[in-house]
Design a protein around this nucleic acid. Structure first.
Lengths: 319, 319
DNA sequence: CTCACACCTAAGCTGAACTTATGCTCGATG
DNA sequence: CATCGAGCATAAGTTCAGCTTAGGTGTGAG
């Protein structure tokens, strides 16, 4: 019978690319990983990996074995979830990852809800970039995470992660009040229904303030502008949306913020709703949806989002 | 992560009933199995088994964990099957189980076919009662097996075994020629379309020759007679159908034989086709259907059955 | 050319998992 | 009712799989 721990290593190798990275993620030495993969390969009777330069790549047989490994590990995750459900009560540590802005919007409400319903649960929040969530979940550093993706930024399908949608919110273009470009009033309601090109076009030549390089927010900004027909000239790279608003107000250029960050009466800026959406989701290891602590977090996050929307709070209307 | 080897033990415990039996099947000591199940239980955090008299039984949590274990092991079997397919050529030992009469009807033709197409394959045939095939497959003593079941004998659904149907053949009532009961001619063609009760009724008071106690053939005979409205008086218990024919010819009573065993011109007996069927199948570990050696055996057995039917051989028409 | 990165192999060490030995409880049997 | 064996659990000893450490090879970047 194939050893599932070895299949796990093979899967991580497929995801992380190098044996050294697998070893680091699972806190082994590279030697141990190499040896175990060697044993797996001998058991399989088929070459699973081959050297390519100074790294290794999976052979077709190796890649198809990874598919089986995914299925097996997924099912094991379901089993532990069910066992956790059979255990009485929800308790113990729950490692929660969140994208930065989620930390001060959704998370506080969700934690309050969790504390109320499951006092024995010990939530541990950690900021993490959405792109690294999958690795964190698989490595066991995280149990659940708030993640998001944008239109124009394809969320690479990942069989190791399951997701529950939380919120879909429009993005807003932020321009300086009185700049003349898209000037209406300081808290422009829903956009004029224009196309992305029509709405962004006037800002083709102003400098842009985007999220930091390598993030999905950055990629979204670039691709949205490209879709509108121009290449943005990026001056500032800042992840915090409040800073984006402040920089725009200071005349430093234009930027994007999601509805959640679009405070009702921002000073000195104009907000224009765009036909461009950001989707927030809760992610967890594939198969783990039945885990009571994870289900509880999903419920709490959903409730928190609902309350934010229902109260007509700073985030405006959610969908 | 749950250890799959331990899940395997749990599954075997569910199937075999006692830790001692699991240990024997997997060639461990009972102590080892007990210890490993203890570890599994501690990891699960939920009681998985509880003592019941001097044995143990699975708790509900334990049983639901077995369902996951089945799924996982099934998927692993698929993976090894695919790997075997990726390996070049079909070869090595193939352990084949067969019910006794299959050994001299289907198996020889299938082996000839296999030898022709896959000379590197080393088939190893072993007679085994259909009821024990599932255990043999799971224990790895067998890779494939010819099995059968009868009407009236429910084939208990088994998630650990996959089956491919091979042949469905009617059963024949065997009575002594000139006995006056159901006397037509020595090789009665298809029965007169009568009901089971009408066809078996005349033999209600004669002694019966059935398969040996504890086999599906025995159970079939008893239940068929019960369905016909009487309790058979069983005198001889014999598995070999040729012996059944000989005993009937010797005036020892009535019996059942499948079409395959109904030689064209048996001396001294009358064969009456019954509305009662026997289904022969090829069984293998769940998920193993893609294994090239197993697929080759299924194909060879199917071809052998087809040739037997096509040649209008001793077995008459197969369906 | 040199260095560092990524991988592999060899050798030694440690702990998990097995066996052996023993005891306990339950149920069948005379 | 006493006895015995079946079945499971625990304790202690042993073995081997799988880890780390150490060292060697090939590759690509500077």
């Amino acid at each position: 019978m194939l050893d599932v721990r070895r299949l796990h290593l093979l899967r991580e190798l497929d995801r992380r690319g190098t044996i050294a990275a697998v070893a680091e993620a699972l806190t082994f030495t590279a030697s141990a990983v190499s040896q175990q993969l060697g044993v797996l390969e001998r058991e399989a009777g088929v070459p699973l990996l081959e050297r390519s330069g100074r790294r290794v790549v999976l052979t077709p047989a190796g890649r198809s074995l990874v598919v089986h490994a995914d299925a097996v590990l997924n099912r094991l995750e379901q089993a532990v979830a069910e066992l956790a459900g059979a255990r009485d009560g929800i308790g113990g540590p729950l490692r929660i990852g969140t994208y930065p802005s989620g930390g001060h919007t959704i998370v506080p409400g969700a934690l309050a809800e969790l504390a109320l319903r499951h006092p024995a649960l010990e939530p541990m929040v950690r900021e993490i970039d959405s792109a690294r969530v999958s690795d964190g979940l698989r490595a066991g550093e995280l149990d659940v995470a708030l993640v998001h993706d944008y239109d124009f930024v394809p969320a690479t399908p990942d069989t190791t992660v399951d997701e529950v949608p939380l919120l879909e919110e429009p993005m807003y273009l932020v321009t300086r009040a009185g700049s003349g470009a898209t000037d209406t009033d300081a808290t422009a309601g829903p956009g004029h229904g224009g196309t992305l090109a029509a709405l962004l076009g006037p800002c083709a030549d102003v400098p842009w303030i985007t999220a930091r390089d390598g993030t999905t927010g950055h990629a979204m900004a670039v691709r949205a502008c490209q879709a509108a027909g121009f290449q943005p000239r990026i001056r500032h790279q800042v992840n915090d949306f409040r800073t984006v608003l402040a920089l725009v107000a200071a005349g430093q250029g234009a930027g994007f913020v999601p509805e959640m960050a679009a405070v009702p009466n921002p000073a000195g800026v104009v907000l224009t709703e765009l036909p461009l959406f950001r989707r927030s989701k809760v992610a967890f290891r594939a198969g783990g949806g039945a885990h009571p602590a994870i289900a509880a977090f999903v419920a709490a996050a959903t409730a928190a989002v609902g309350r934010m929307a229902g109260a007509g709070g700073p985030a405006g209307s959610a969908r």
